[in-house]
Write a protein that binds this DNA or RNA. Structure first.
Lengths: 110, 110
DNA sequence: CGTCGACTTGAAGACTTCTGCAACTACTCA
DNA sequence: TGAGTAGTTGCAGAAGTCTTCAAGTCGACG
């Protein structure tokens, strides 16, 4: 496999590596949403949100279009939802393991 | 959803946002491997690889153990493979023969 | 024991990403 | 057309990440 290919993969995951961007993608799973709604749900400056949206747009993970006086954003592919779901699953397994270990730690007299 | 939760999600994706770390996880999909094998397959300084492995270990995405004179690494959960697969799928949808990476992506089953 | 091989850790400098402010563009609607 | 709303862009300082070098640990084996 070529070096650029896993650089592309890494770049894609890096795009999800930010709380605001994750939040945006989760909100967009339910369908297209105007920036104003995203702003209302995410505690962030408009300019900051716009910067994060620009990154997602440049990575082609979302697309934007205008609808009347509003700019709308949408996932460019529903596969993004699978990625988020897989992430959630790992997180829950990892946290469960950690809790399991924690319980074990507490119950053994060492 | 609490703020810390999507910070945790973001952190998990950020962990995958590096070519060396992606490469390591892809190699570990086939089963546990000693550091020396990873080093042989990835073009990186030993100390650098070790730093990246430490990050993955701290994020609980991989685990390490000793086997004789070698240190082995393994995925902490097979769900990591799903995440990589979902990433691949988005990349192929998003990349739609933009720079010839697409063909390679489809031809290598990893 | 002592030394060797196999990693790991610490630290520093280069580099990248994040954030918020201010200025700006793009539209809509009266 | 002019006023107003919605969003974007440029920029600079702060914060974080990456890479490399040197030094350190840990277990195996003679």
């Amino acid at each position: 496999m070529s070096v650029p290919l896993y650089q592309a993969k890494a770049e894609m995951f890096r795009m999800l590596g930010h709380p605001v961007r994750i939040r945006v993608l989760e909100l967009l799973q339910a369908g297209p949403r105007p920036v104003r709604d995203l702003l209302a749900e995410i505690d962030v400056e408009p300019s900051n949100l716009s910067q994060q949206l620009a990154l997602l747009r440049r990575a082609a993970i979302v697309v934007s279009f205008r609808d009347g006086g509003l700019v709308m954003y949408a996932l460019s592919t529903p596969a993004v939802a699978d990625l988020l779901a897989a992430g959630r699953r790992i997180l829950s397994e990892v946290l469960t393991d950690r809790d399991g270990l924690l319980a074990e730690l507490k119950s053994t007299a060492e």
